[in-house]
Simulated scan of single mutants.
Amino acid sequence: MPIDAAKALAAEPRSTTITWGHKDVQLYHLGLGAGRPATDPDELRYTLESKLHVLPSFATVAGAGMGVVGGLSAPGIDVDLAAVLHGGQSITVHRPVPVHGEATSTSKVAAVHDKGKAAVLVLRTEAADADGPLWTSDAQIYVRGEGGFGGERGPSTRAELPDRDPDHVVERPVREEQALLYRLSGDWNPLHADPDFAKLAGFERPILHGLCTYGMTLKAVVDTLLDGDVTRVRSYATRFTGIVFPGETLRIRMWPAPGRVQVTVTAVERDDAPVLADTVVALN
């Protein structure tokens, strides 16, 4: 069987040194749609080096996001990339991410779940610098056709929404060229740029990166509810439920509560088709 769960879980973690600077952070923020309006003081926090802070979701692209790639090449993992889907993502930040950094990034297969017709790999990346831990990032990777090996199904990630209308609803447009800009942060999959490749994959045109939607959503929460204070974010988790096409509009619904915010994201132009679900931002 292409996935040997015991071998994958027993494999030694892989470590590499990653570095980043203000250009990487600014490029990432621009890829999320930051900088509109360009002179808005609230947007300059994302775009101007003298005022810059770092959105915690930057952890998914720091060092070009090599943690997931390393996990998929771990011992015991031999899968067809065409059968791989990014099912969910979570990040826990242990302290604010610095604008400039050098860290050791360590990746491993933290869990292998058996969903019957598919396997779910939890690929964990932990980053630490000279001052200690920075973040822990878990990517839930859904691999079609690789289940049925008798493993544990794993925990449910369903988050029950409050029985009321959302407290805040904001809309964020996705620019036509946004996927082309976001991919410069390290995800070069042609699915997000090449129309012919997208059609071979079953899509009418290139789609937006799920992690771009993920970052856009966190920015909307930080700007709407936290007065732009990125240090208030302790962790952020979501489940990817649908695609977004460049040029569409995200509708982001928020239910704040003590210590957390629950969120859903839909695509406005496709009758509120689900995009992100079971989304929770935990707060300091």
Results as ranks from 00 to 15, higher is better:
residue 2 P to H: 02
residue 3 I to E: 00
residue 6 A to K: 11
residue 11 A to K: 02
residue 12 E to D: 06
residue 14 R to L: 14
residue 15 S to Q: 13
residue 19 T to G: 09
residue 20 W to Y: 09
residue 20 W to K: 09
residue 23 K to F: 02
residue 24 D to S: 11
residue 27 L to T: 01
residue 28 Y to M: 05
residue 31 G to R: 00
residue 32 L to V: 02
residue 33 G to E: 03
residue 37 P to H: 02
residue 46 Y to C: 07
residue 46 Y to A: 10
residue 47 T to Y: 02
residue 50 S to C: 06
residue 52 L to T: 04
residue 53 H to K: 05
residue 55 L to W: 02
residue 57 S to C: 09
residue 57 S to D: 03
residue 63 G to S: 03
residue 63 G to V: 04
residue 65 G to A: 04
residue 67 G to F: 14
residue 69 V to I: 01
residue 70 G to H: 10
residue 71 G to S: 11
residue 73 S to E: 12
residue 77 I to T: 01
residue 83 A to Y: 01
residue 84 V to D: 01
residue 88 G to Y: 00
residue 89 Q to S: 12
residue 92 T to E: 14
residue 93 V to P: 07
residue 98 P to V: 03
residue 101 G to A: 12
residue 108 K to H: 05
residue 112 V to I: 00
residue 112 V to Q: 00
residue 114 D to R: 06
residue 115 K to F: 02
residue 116 G to Y: 09
residue 116 G to I: 11
residue 116 G to T: 07
residue 120 V to N: 00
residue 121 L to K: 01
residue 122 V to Y: 01
residue 126 E to V: 15
residue 128 A to Y: 10
residue 128 A to W: 13
residue 128 A to C: 11
residue 130 A to D: 09
residue 133 P to M: 12
residue 134 L to E: 14
residue 135 W to D: 14
residue 135 W to A: 14
residue 138 D to I: 11
residue 139 A to N: 09
residue 140 Q to F: 07
residue 140 Q to P: 02
residue 142 Y to S: 06
residue 145 G to I: 08
residue 147 G to R: 08
residue 148 G to P: 10
residue 151 G to S: 06
residue 153 R to E: 13
residue 154 G to N: 10
residue 155 P to W: 05
residue 159 A to I: 12
residue 160 E to W: 02
residue 169 V to Y: 07
residue 171 E to C: 11
residue 175 R to A: 15
residue 180 L to F: 09
residue 186 G to D: 04
residue 192 H to Q: 09
residue 196 D to P: 05
residue 196 D to L: 11
residue 196 D to R: 05
residue 200 L to E: 09
residue 200 L to P: 03
residue 205 R to M: 15
residue 206 P to Y: 14
residue 207 I to R: 15
residue 207 I to W: 15
residue 214 Y to P: 13
residue 214 Y to I: 10
residue 218 L to I: 08
residue 218 L to P: 12
residue 218 L to G: 11
residue 222 V to M: 10
residue 225 L to E: 13
residue 226 L to C: 13
residue 231 T to E: 15
residue 231 T to N: 12
residue 233 V to C: 13
residue 234 R to W: 14
residue 234 R to G: 15
residue 235 S to K: 09
residue 239 R to A: 13
residue 240 F to T: 12
residue 241 T to R: 15
residue 248 E to I: 08
residue 249 T to R: 15
residue 249 T to S: 15
residue 252 I to W: 03
residue 253 R to A: 12
residue 254 M to A: 02
residue 255 W to G: 01
residue 256 P to S: 00
residue 258 P to E: 05
residue 259 G to H: 06
residue 261 V to G: 04
residue 261 V to H: 01
residue 261 V to M: 06
residue 261 V to S: 06
residue 262 Q to S: 08
residue 264 T to H: 06
residue 268 V to R: 10
residue 268 V to Y: 03
residue 269 E to V: 11
residue 274 P to R: 07
residue 274 P to T: 04
residue 277 A to F: 08
residue 280 V to N: 08
residue 283 L to Q: 02
